[in-house]
Design a protein around this nucleic acid. Structure first.
Length: 880
RNA sequence: GGAGUGUUAGCUCAGUUGGUUUAGAGCACCGCCUUGACAGGGCGGGGGUCGUUGGUUCGAAUCCAAUACACUCCA
């Protein structure tokens, strides 16, 4: 059989993925086994795979594949969310291209377009996850707008409303004038912008005096309803109780006093615009001020804007400042750096706006979620440092504005039957609403028969997170049927893998929902990955264009290469500086394994006695493998995925390929004995099992090349190796031997002696090292004989391992000077080291206070160093 | 302005309750090696006074305080 010398991922990836799919290895149904479940953080339905998804989903796949190999009933539920604002923005843009305007078509028509869009692009990202190798149970794929998922959302809304936790409030919200919707605080990005501070003069009513205020937003003066001064500010105390006149509109407004005003800032005199600033609103409520909203919903001015009506706020800012200047109201301007809230989605500058919104009271709900993470450890965050961030947010939690002025999403099930603020009912359907509304008006004493036409459903939809906070429950049908078999089996899920940027948006809220609706945590462990950044530490984003094309990467380096590349340097919670050379490293690793396979497969097997070296090597690797296995388990238990991978990387590359295969390798064109061959194949297979979660394609490919396998014998469903007792002795002996080998190799290098020229080795075995490994040393260094001597050999090059001394006789002149120099250097180092140890030991307080073990250790160090110094000094004496 | 996290080799990071050879890994770098698995390889090597300054301790990269810088979140 001809095996290509290079591993070709493109050739095998599709083949194995469809093989896995065909045999349904990823599908899960409840059974007697222990469940292991993960729900995917649902990506936006219209999104495409980016580096963050790749990292995130690679980690999930590693966890789920490992669980599957460990015999658990592994279930990874995939899906997408409807991303109301992002998707709606895209649909609006598409309609615009077609010359249509969202506000000229009906809601139903718009939703048809949105569904078309969803069906067209909705599957893309999930298909991309398959390319990455993700072993999701695709038969369970969910979408937050699926009928059952929406029904769950509505049911929860009604339940919370009935419990009195959802209420309607007139609040100041973050208004995105471009998308014409509300944003949550978390969707607002604060940016520093260079702006101006305008100093404006307001005349005092009934006086020639005027007062100067400083503002960053001169256009909002038209909404001013007071001037505020600090009662402790003597400069203005004479103005108490007077009134001021707003420039241009000539409105007469009160001058109020409040300690809120910062005396130092600007002129220490503040204009109050309750409709357009959250702090001003608070002041307004406190002092009973009028509220004048000067903006339309697209942030153009309304009729309060006088002759600026219909113009955009930024245009007005320029024009009004000019007019103010011309009319003598503008005293001066100053450069001013201020923080401006912008929309995460549309980049528009946020306008604080008063409007009617739906809120969910959070304080009570949050309590069990706080305890779960911070008190009883039912939910563990990895890395732990995020607990502080979590605490800070949860303990200062604010009510959640769950309404969005959009169409794409679950429409709020509130039905208005009259004009009053509270003339509404909340119900699952219009029919039910009608009954409730009828009851409401009847009990209110009104004698009127309502019809469906009298009801008007709230226009707004629910925040997308109000769908996804139910995700771990709703994907298993646990909201609609709380006692169904699926949710009882899979819930709580085991691990959640996501980015720290949505710790509050999503993770905290899922924990809240979990306790509210299942009285149980939604997951046990939360692994928070870092953000993927580029080499200049910039966050990868579409707008910067610094994100590599995920699928192109897979094409170039293979899915396994990319997975390894992403994981190699992504310590939990630390940002990952993405660099394509990491993928190259992953690709190289795949190739290394492939070639190890080629080597073994190329051997001719024969019935020969097993060489001593092979037997030793195999036993040693067995021990090393078990030691590494324990280490890997430990890494996994701490979610140190990249450390686990590195341990396997070194096990396979260094221990298996560089050491074991070299030890057992038969001479050129010679056959290998069957016993060794079988053992090496077995060990190789065990390695492939460890590799599989990280490199599923390559490992399956090699596995299937090694032998003909039935579907039941596929690697994807094989058995994770079981821990066995580690023979530490073999490992220490080997380590010593490898140092000897390294010493000989160094001498070959230094003296330029080719490998084919055999050497002779003598040694002073002060350490009393076992002779067992001599055969291995001889094989790997081409040493023809090893003799044990009891005094230094003259005219030989030497090196030392611990206090053993090794000699290689040289024909020709030995560079005595160089030898002396080398030994002197080693001697100096060892003496320095001994000194530092002796310093400790001569310190009485150390000897008296330190634990016995530590003192014993130091004594051993000293003894070892002394022995070595003795050896070195003897060598020096014999040379000089 | 408030809170948090971090600062260890050229880069990315380990260093698990202070003691395991005067700090480790991977990559990068520098030599040498074109023979028979793999140049996407092999062998060998150099490289850090652990941000700074104090303190606690017999002993500090590790604990405490101050300070500088970087990042994140909140206002």
């Amino acid at each position: 059989m001809e095996i290509p010398s290079k591993y070709e991922p493109q050739r095998v990836e599709e083949q194995w993925y469809s093989y896995w799919m065909k045999h349904g290895y990823f599908n899960s149904v409840p059974d007697d086994r222990e469940p292991y479940s993960i729900v995917i953080p649902p990506p936006n339905v219209t999104g495409v795979l980016h580096m963050g998804h790749m990292l995130n989903n690679t980690i999930q796949d590693v966890l789920i594949r490992r669980a599957r190999l460990m015999g658990k009933n592994a279930c990874w539920v995939p899906g997408t969310d409807h991303a109301s604002i992002a998707t709606e923005a895209k649909v609006v843009a598409k309609l615009k291209e077609q010359g249509k305007d969202k506000f000229n078509i009906s809601r139903d028509e718009f939703l048809d377009h949105a569904w078309d869009w969803t069906h067209e692009y909705g599957g893309v990202i999930l298909e991309q996850l398959k390319k990455l190798g993700c072993s999701c149970d695709w038969s369970r794929t969910k979408f937050t707008m699926d009928d059952d998922m929406s029904a769950s959302v509505i049911k929860v809304f009604i339940d919370l409303f009935d419990k009195g936790m959802i209420y309607r409030g007139h609040r100041m919200v973050n208004w995105d004038p471009e998308a014409k919707t509300t944003l949550s605080d978390e969707e607002v990005i604060h940016e520093e912008r260079q702006g101006l501070l305008y100093y404006l003069s307001y005349q005092i009513d009934g006086s020639d005096e005027s007062v100067t205020i400083a503002t960053t937003r001169p256009e909002t003066i038209l909404g001013d309803t007071a001037i505020c001064i600090n009662p402790n500010d003597e400069r203005y105390s004479h103005l108490k109780g007077k009134k001021a006149i707003v420039p241009l509109c000539n409105r007469v407004i009160p001058i109020i006093q409040d300690e809120y005003v910062d005396i130092e800032f600007g002129t220490g005199c503040l204009k109050v615009t309750p409709a357009h600033d959250i702090n001003d609103k608070t002041l307004g409520e406190k002092h009973n001020l009028e509220v004048i909203d000067i903006f339309n919903e697209d942030a153009t001015l309304n009729s309060f804007g006088l002759h600026y009506q219909g113009k955009d706020r930024f245009v007005v800012r320029k024009e009004i400042s000019k007019e103010l200047e011309e009319k003598g109201f503008l005293i001066k301007t100053e450069q001013h750096l201020n923080k401006v809230g912008t929309s995460e989605r549309t980049k528009a500058v946020i306008e604080p706006r008063l409007s009617d919104q739906w809120f969910l009271a959070m304080e009570q709900l949050a309590k069990p979620a706080i305890d779960a993470v911070l008190k009883n450890n039912e939910v563990k965050l990895f890395p732990k440092k995020f607990e502080n961030t979590y605490r800070h947010w949860m303990e200062n939690i604010r009510d959640w504005n769950i309404s969005r002025q959009l169409w794409w999403g679950q429409q709020i099930p509130a039905y208005y039957y009259g004009d009053g603020q509270n003339d509404f009912v909340v119900a699952e359907s219009k029919e039910e609403a009608l009954v409730k509304a009828q009851q409401a008006i009847t009990s209110g004493g009104v004698k009127k028969v309502l019809t469906a036409d009298d009801l008007r459903q709230d226009e707004d939809v629910l925040d997308t997170w109000f769908s996804s906070w139910l995700w771990p429950i709703s994907v298993f049908g646990g909201i609609l049927e709380p006692n169904n078999k699926e949710v009882n089996y899979y819930y709580p899920t085991n691990d959640l893998v996501t980015g720290p940027d949505i710790l509050f948006f999503w993770v905290a809220r899922m924990i809240i929902a979990g306790y509210e609706y299942r009285n149980e945590r939604p997951f046990e462990n939360v692994y928070l990955t870092g953000l993927v950044r580029d080499k200049q530490r910039r966050k990868m984003s579409k707008s910067l264009g610094n994100s590599p094309d995920a699928l192109k990467l897979i094409e170039e380096y293979g899915a396994d290469g990319v997975r390894v590349g992403l994981l190699l340097s992504s310590a939990a919670g630390n940002d990952l500086m993405f660099d394509e050379t990491l993928c190259q490293q992953g690709k190289n690793f795949a190739n290394k394994i492939w070639n190890a396979f080629r080597l073994i497969k190329g051997w001719e097997v024969s019935d020969l006695p097993q060489p001593e070296a092979s037997s030793l090597g195999i036993n040693w690797f067995g021990a090393k493998f078990n030691q590494t296995l324990v280490e890997i388990e430990d890494h996994f238990s701490k979610y140190r995925i990249s450390d686990a991978l590195m341990a396997i990387y070194k096990l396979v590359w260094d221990d298996f390929c560089s050491w074991l295969l070299e030890i057992v390798k038969p001479a050129y064109q010679q056959p290998i004995d069957r016993e060794t061959y079988d053992a090496v194949i077995h060990l190789f297979e065990e390695n492939l099992k460890l590799l599989h979660p990280f490199m599923p394609f390559l490992s399956e490919e090699v596995w299937q090349h090694i032998a003909v396998r039935t579907p039941e014998e596929a690697l994807v469903v094989s058995q994770w190796p079981i821990d066995q007792k580690v023979n530490i002795n073999l490992i220490t002996e080997f380590d010593f031997a490898s140092e000897v080998i390294s010493g000989i190799r160094t001498i070959r290098k230094e003296k330029n002696i080719a490998m084919k020229d055999a050497l002779e080795l003598s040694l002073l075995n002060e350490e009393n090292v076992s002779k067992n490994w001599d055969v291995v040393i001889q094989k790997l260094t081409n040493v023809s004989s090893i003799s044990y001597v009891n005094k230094p050999v003259d005219g030989a090059l030497s090196f030392r391992v611990k206090s053993n001394e090794y000699f290689i006789p040289m024909s020709g002149a030995i560079d005595v000077e160089a030898e002396i120099k080398k030994i002197t250097e080693e001697l100096d180092y060892t003496k320095g080291f001994l000194q530092s140890v002796q310093n400790k030991l001569s310190n009485e307080r150390f000897v008296n206070n330190a634990p016995e073990q530590v003192v014993a250790m130091e004594k051993k160090k000293a003894a070892d160093a002394e022995a070595k110094i003795e050896t070195l000094e003897k060598s020096l004496a014999s040379l000089g």
